[in-house]
């Protein structure tokens, strides 16, 4: 009796984490794709730990697609991979990306190629396939990650099944840079220290206002109390160290004095530089 077997993902891959730079690179490649191409594909590099694939880097690979066949520039892929390894040997091949919505016909063939590549590299994980819907088909940014598992009849392989895995799109680096900069098409000026600080303070202020309002509402009985939120607020308040006003004043004033001393020092140095320059030019006239 032939048994239709479905191998559940033998891999330890549970989820995947996408870095913002990869997304930007894919968008850039798509914008710069050749005239006749519908989609761009490319290689993903990154690292694996505890079943989480971190996708850290990527590069596009030229390819040709017709109705029934896909030609991938394998040499290009290998050259580029070697070049990338020279810079950062810790970033290894983890999979491939393609633009477009979901998995399409030619994808199985390309995926097979990457499965082989990864096997050769003796990687412990199967490749991940990332799709980025650059066409915004459903009116939303759909970015998905898949791993494939084999569907076979007895020993005969029948098909490959692509299974979606959770994708972490939080992108901490992008947060560091600031979404304000990455979100708009043109930013005229980078925010400096104080402007950034001001924005942060404003956000903090509005958050405090919100909490204030919420607590007020609960106390007045306008909003049903939520124990979780209440506990969270209590914890937050408890985390502020208790200090006597005198002690706090002392710490505060000390800190302020330190800072003032530093500012004073730096202006002193600057003045010194000014004088030194004047003296040097005077010496030249001699």
């Amino acid at each position: 009796m032939a048994v239709l077997q479905f191998f559940p993902p033998s891999s330890p891959v549970v989820s995947s984490k996408l870095h913002a730079v990869v997304l930007f690179n894919i968008c850039d490649c798509y914008v710069r794709r050749p005239d006749q191409a519908d989609r761009v594909i490319g290689t993903l590099l990154g690292s694996v730990s505890d079943g989480v694939i971190e996708i850290k880097n990527s590069y596009a690979v030229p390819h040709n697609e017709s109705a029934d066949q896909v030609a991938l520039d394998v040499d290009y892929h290998r050259n580029m991979y070697l070049s990338h390894l020279k810079v950062n040997p810790k970033e290894v091949l983890v999979g491939w990306f393609s633009t477009g919505f979901g998995v399409s016909g030619g994808s199985a063939l390309i995926h097979e190629f990457y499965v082989k590549e990864l096997k050769e590299a003796q990687s412990s994980i199967p490749p991940i396939h990332l799709t980025v819907d650059t066409g915004f088909k459903n009116g939303e940014a759909s970015i998905k990650g898949y791993v494939s598992s084999n569907l076979s009849l007895g020993d005969r392989p029948l098909a490959a099944q692509f299974q979606e895995i959770p994708l972490d799109l939080r992108m901490i680096e992008a947060e560091r840079v600031g979404f304000d900069i990455l979100k708009t098409t043109v930013v005229d000026k980078l925010p400096n220290d104080l402007e950034g600080m001001e924005a942060s303070m404003e956000r903090l202020h509005s958050l405090l206002d919100e909490i204030y309002k919420y607590v007020g509402d609960v106390v007045e009985g306008r909003v049903a109390p939520d124990n979780d939120i209440g506990r969270f607020l209590a914890d937050t308040l408890a985390s502020v160290p208790r200090m006597s006003p005198a002690a706090f004043d002392k710490v505060f004033n000390d800190k302020i004095q330190d800072n003032l001393a530093l500012v004073y020092l730096s202006s002193l140095v600057k003045t010194q530089l000014g004088i030194a320059e004047k003296l040097n030019t005077a010496a030249q006239i001699l």
């Binding site: 997304l23 930007f24 968008c27 850039d28 798509y30 914008v31 650059t134 900069i181 990455l182 979100k183 708009t184 098409t185 043109v186 930013v187 005229d188 000026k189 980078l190």
Partner: peptide, 8 residues
């Protein structure tokens, strides 16, 4: 100045 493609 920082610029981004409309897509990104």
């Amino acid at each position: 100045k920082v610029s981004n493609s409309a897509l990104a």
